[in-house]
């Protein structure tokens, strides 16, 4: 089911055959073994130019003192190598721990909620008739298609203190209910985007709203591939919906979930646009920084310190790579066992 073993097997079995065949073909035409690699070259070149070069440059900058004087287009000063000084600054800063905390906790909450909600909607769409299913798919995909900037603006308005629909709706609740649940009855002018906790609450809502449709549609695609006999058998055996899900759907869709978790984790770890706009740009409370915003602020807010910004970005990337690789390894291991 997973791709890794397939590739590995292909590579191993062909290795001994390569030598002789190559020698015979060299004079006349390209070896058929080389053709796939040749076809990959343009793609690799594009990736190298667009992805690797910036990465390498960022890595280089993270070990240098780079400010506007070094970065300017005309008469720049040479960038000075400062060793791990930028990284030391990152780790010593109080902002590192608050941003790390915000980044990780947000990713945990957002990924969990996106997956749970997305799966539930996917199951719902599977149950619906064709017309209704298409209606729900189109409806949710519309939310997914909204650009991050627009998402942030939309939710900023919903949670606006004076004109937002959220405060309005909360005010419509009967006073005793609001009092019992939230401990307050009056929501007029309640600011949502001042404190870290409520900023992140709004952010989770905005991000989950925009990212669950992708999960739902992917899960739906997976569900369509499961033979219906399995479900019939389960029904005959008297399994309920929950049991059916955990015993049939989940194990069969495991690879789908694995990919979705990794993707969601990558997306939610590096969330920037929505947070930046919701919380008020570079002037947001510093307690609400996540690693991406902090990196941006250090790198581009005057006085620009791009070396420090790059170092933060590297730290973020490394953390993300670590988490993802551990997770992927675990998936691959459990695949092998099966």
């Amino acid at each position: 089911m997973a791709q890794t073993p397939t590739i590995a097997r292909g590579g191993n079995s062909s290795a001994p055959a390569r030598g002789p065949r190559n020698r015979a073909a060299r004079t006349r035409r390209l070896s058929p073994r080389a053709i796939p690699y040749l076809l990959l070259v343009p793609c690799l070149l594009v990736i190298a130019a667009l992805l690797l070069y910036p990465l390498v440059q960022m890595l280089q900058m993270s070990f240098q003192e780079v400010g506007l004087r070094q970065f300017r287009a005309r008469n720049p000063l040479p960038a000075e190598f400062v060793g791990v000084d930028n990284f030391r600054q990152v780790l010593e800063s109080e902002l590192f721990w608050t941003s790390l905390r915000n980044t990780v906790l947000f990713a945990l909450v957002a990924v969990t909620m996106t997956l749970v909600f997305g799966t539930l909607v996917g199951l719902l769409m599977h149950k619906l008739g064709p017309k209704m299913s298409i209606f729900v798919v189109v409806g949710t995909m519309a939310a997914w298609a909204v650009p991050p900037t627009a998402q942030a603006i939309i939710w900023k308005w919903q949670f606006d203190a004076d004109a937002g629909i959220v405060n309005w709706a909360l005010n419509l609740l009967p006073d005793w209910l609001s009092q019992a649940v939230f401990g307050r009855a009056d929501w007029t002018g309640q600011p949502w985007l001042n404190d870290t906790l409520s900023i992140y609450f709004v952010l989770v809502v905005a991000v989950v709203w925009a990212s669950f449709p992708f999960i739902a549609v992917s899960v739906l695609a997976g569900l369509k591939s499961i033979p219906s006999e399995l479900y019939e058998a389960a029904r005959v055996d008297g399994a309920g919906a929950v049991r059916t899900f955990w015993k049939i759907t989940f194990p069969l869709l495991r690879p789908v979930f694995a990919v979705l978790v990794v993707l969601s984790m990558i997306w939610d770890f590096k969330v920037f646009t929505q947070l930046f706009l919701l919380a008020g740009g570079t002037n947001m409370p510093r307690d609400a920084f996540n690693l991406s915003v902090w990196s941006y602020v250090e790198a581009f807010n005057p006085p620009a310190d791009m070396g420090l910004g790059a170092a933060i970005a590297i730290v973020l990337t490394v953390i993300l790579l670590l988490i993802t690789s551990v997770y992927v390894r675990q998936i691959v291991k459990s695949e092998d066992v099966r």
Partner: peptide, 13 residues
């Protein structure tokens, strides 16, 4: 203004 000047220096434009 601060951001515009930063961009102006960085881009040379």
């Amino acid at each position: 203004a601060q951001n515009k000047w930063t961009t102006a220096l960085a881009s040379g434009e």
